[in-house]
Measured scan of single mutants.
Amino acid sequence: SLTLTVRGEEAVRRWYKWAQAHNLEVEVETHGDEYVLHIK
């Protein structure tokens, strides 16, 4: 499992696509303009 902090929706989309390509689940938490992604 992997936890990432990114800024901006574009980065979130990029990681989301990456995770889907690897059959992984993604949980997204929003903290202001930062997003915490939990990839499992």
Rank of each mutant, 00 (worst) to 15 (best):
1 S>N: 13
1 S>G: 14
1 S>P: 12
1 S>T: 15
1 S>W: 14
1 S>A: 12
2 L>G: 05
2 L>R: 05
2 L>F: 15
3 T>R: 10
3 T>A: 06
3 T>Y: 04
4 L>V: 15
4 L>Y: 04
4 L>T: 05
5 T>V: 15
6 V>N: 01
6 V>S: 02
6 V>F: 05
7 R>T: 12
7 R>C: 10
7 R>M: 11
8 G>K: 04
8 G>F: 05
8 G>M: 03
9 E>N: 06
9 E>A: 10
9 E>D: 09
9 E>I: 14
10 E>C: 03
11 A>T: 08
11 A>D: 09
11 A>R: 05
12 V>E: 02
12 V>C: 03
13 R>Y: 10
14 R>P: 03
15 W>L: 08
15 W>Y: 06
15 W>F: 08
15 W>T: 02
15 W>G: 01
15 W>Q: 01
16 Y>V: 15
16 Y>R: 13
16 Y>Q: 15
16 Y>T: 15
16 Y>H: 10
16 Y>N: 06
17 K>P: 01
17 K>Q: 13
17 K>S: 11
18 W>Q: 01
18 W>I: 03
18 W>S: 01
18 W>A: 02
18 W>G: 00
19 A>S: 03
19 A>Q: 01
20 Q>T: 12
20 Q>L: 13
20 Q>W: 10
20 Q>P: 00
21 A>N: 08
22 H>D: 02
22 H>V: 04
22 H>I: 04
22 H>Q: 09
23 N>P: 01
23 N>E: 07
23 N>K: 08
24 L>T: 02
24 L>R: 06
24 L>D: 01
25 E>M: 12
25 E>Y: 14
25 E>T: 14
25 E>D: 11
26 V>G: 01
26 V>Q: 01
26 V>M: 14
27 E>V: 14
27 E>S: 13
27 E>N: 09
28 V>A: 04
28 V>R: 02
28 V>Q: 04
28 V>D: 01
28 V>H: 05
29 E>N: 05
29 E>Q: 09
30 T>Q: 15
31 H>W: 10
31 H>F: 12
31 H>L: 11
32 G>P: 04
32 G>H: 05
32 G>T: 04
33 D>G: 08
33 D>I: 06
33 D>Y: 06
33 D>N: 10
34 E>L: 15
34 E>D: 10
34 E>H: 15
35 Y>K: 03
35 Y>F: 12
35 Y>T: 05
36 V>C: 03
36 V>T: 11
37 L>R: 00
37 L>S: 00
38 H>C: 03
38 H>K: 10
38 H>F: 08
39 I>M: 07
39 I>N: 00
40 K>A: 08
40 K>T: 13
40 K>I: 11
40 K>V: 09
40 K>W: 15
